[in-house]
Design a protein around this nucleic acid. Structure first.
Lengths: 351, 351
DNA sequence: TATATAATTGACACCGGTATCATTTAGGGG
DNA sequence: CCCCTAAATGATACCGGTGTCAATTATATA
């Protein structure tokens, strides 16, 4: 407790340094027009008084706060928490605190609600998470409002300054390649929700890999899910119920992959000796089951860091710099216990 | 977009309503001294102009912001996300936005850091999550600062207005009772980290149940862990390695219970036919494995809601009201597939 | 009906900063 | 050495609200 009782104001510093408060303000804002000498005088006074400027008062003048907003839909809490962690990492070091703001999914008013939030809190910038970030109406709104933004999504975009993209497509291709290398030819796929662009990207990656390896995409090997555990169970049952069941299943996310594993267990199909299963996301539980799940790691924290780094650059009015921050994140294939060579008795049994 | 271009200020409303801006301010703050008639005039003007007061400006005058802080240690992201969700639920309906602020664990400066955060953002209140909330230094700091607070923890406290407690002790007792009902007499326990009061409470519950049922607490049935998955694996190996291995294992949290399940699987011990396992927390993955995990549900979201409800009451200067909000939360036993009757061949094999 | 008292309302300073523009100081050329 | 121009600094209004206290109005009392 350096200060006596009240915290120092800019007037105290001005008095202490023997300058006007405007000059102190200049120092705080690193204005280049201040003399070296004056600068030091003020700096010392600031240090002596243990002064920190009041963000509220500054915000009132600037018509802008020192807050970032994190806008998300409350679907997957683990997902959010990790990104949030990364965002906090960078934003706080840049002098911004973070306001979190989940939106009711399905509530069509959410865009207006976000606008109101931005307006009222005078947010300096927002980071929008998928699937909200895919919404074109939102982007339209953000462009019309005095607030910077960065979108996190898995759909490629031609707007490096405002996006951090995880390259889901290549990652799923990688994962499919891994299975193909293990000898699998007959591979099932559990698709994500129909409206989701992210899910579409993941399927595209699967398709890429199969075509590149001259394998056919069989209709009977594709089932639809909605990224929920239950839909993974159902989907796997469908895939495994046919006469020529696939020797491997790729699920569009871990949640469904876990569902597939439970379905297999209940059907008495051993993973991985009789069936390989892969997921996508590397959720915490993926490593904590037996057999542990081969999947792909999102680097969520890193994405959060990059997003806030871009946002901070945008708020400094340096869009070029924001664009130069890495925009596309590659994911890491994580091979665990749920994948193995195709069992010999099935070997030739492909399409 | 109702407003023309700029948002309306209090002066605009005052002009529109034909009163002074101070009177408008009174209406905003629901001051009782305003006439019914004036009140309506102003309300209508506000509605016509689509006016919302500027929280920054109000905060500057009040020397207080309309922000709550959520202070946590970054150990378990799922845990945080759910509470955060509940906190947001209530706090936003009370007119507060939420700033999230993780603290580096191990960094001993964190209390000062929180003080600075409170000071700079002039937070109206903070909600502190365990294990941070257990720290007496923190509480001392919070009492010396002009900011309301609510602690979430699992240790009983005599301070209803400032705490939301989850009754871990009774819950673990319940879970042990469940096992005892199933015929288990020889029950192992994997303890949480040594410093943690929460872990101590859970063990106390276990002990309660055994003593109540006149079972002995055997030293060989207690191993220490640290709430991590890995320590669950190790702990279970120790418990299962002896000559008279327990027929059931209670882990102090789900994470370790999952570790125990993997350990059992690798040892070729079938769950639940040869070994029952229970966890604590009901993390999302608990239901998404086979066999699914019997555990206890935290009602994290509810805790978050109650905490923010209390905090809002405190901020309205109604401590009695805050104290009346439910303070102790009972947890729900969730029986799934990982527990079963004790196998007959072991039946008499107790202490 | 006049007056004392309480209930409403308004004028103005202030919260802690920044913007604008005038003023002072410093540097350079004649 | 003086004048001109540019750089550094300061005075004052203002951001959008609230607090204080005085001024006005309504109500109660005599």
């Amino acid at each position: 407790m350096a200060q006596n009782s009240k915290k120092a104001t800019i007037n105290d510093v001005a008095r202490e340094a023997g300058v006007s408060k405007k000059t102190v303000s200049r120092v705080i804002n690193k204005s280049p027009e201040v003399t070296q000498k004056t600068y030091q005088k003020v700096e010392q006074a600031i240090a002596r008084l243990d002064y920190t400027p009041d963000p509220q008062a500054r915000g009132l003048s600037f018509r802008r706060s020192f807050l970032f907003g994190l806008i998300y839909d409350n679907v997957n809490t683990a997902f959010i928490a990790d990104i949030q962690d990364g965002v906090l990492d960078k934003s706080r070091s840049e002098g911004y605190e973070l306001v979190v703001h989940p939106c009711e999914h399905g509530n069509s008013q959410w865009i207006d609600e976000v606008r109101l939030l931005i307006d009222r809190l005078k947010l300096a910038g927002v980071i929008v998470l998928p699937p909200l970030s895919e919404n074109p109406e939102l982007v339209k709104m953000l462009k019309g409002v005095d607030c910077e933004y960065v979108r996190i999504l898995s759909v490629p975009l031609d707007d490096d300054a405002h996006m951090v993209q995880s390259d889901d497509r290549s990652a799923v291709a990688q994962i499919a390649d891994h299975l193909i290398e293990l000898g699998h030819r007959n591979i099932g796929f559990i698709h994500g929700p129909k409206g989701s662009q992210a899910a579409a990207e993941r399927y595209a990656g699967f398709s890429d890999a199969l075509l590149r390896n001259k394998l056919k995409l069989l209709k009977r090997n594709l089932v639809w899910g909605d990224h929920s555990f239950a839909s993974g169970v159902v989907g796997a049952h469908k895939l495994l119920g046919g006469k020529t069941r696939p020797s491997a299943i790729v699920a569009s996310n871990d949640e469904m992959a876990l569902g597939a594993m439970v379905a297999a267990a209940k059907l008495g199909i051993d993973v991985p000796s009789q069936l390989s299963i892969v997921g996508f996301d590397d959720e915490p539980q993926a490593a904590k089951i037996y057999p542990s799940l081969t999947t792909v790691n999102h680097n969520l924290k890193r994405m959060g860091q990059l997003a806030s780094e871009k946002l901070a650059a945008l708020c400094r009015n340096q869009p070029e710099q924001a664009a130069q921050v890495q925009s596309v994140i590659c994911l890491d294939l994580i091979v665990r216990e749920s994948t193995a060579k195709v069992p010999p008795e099935i070997q030739g049994n492909d399409n």
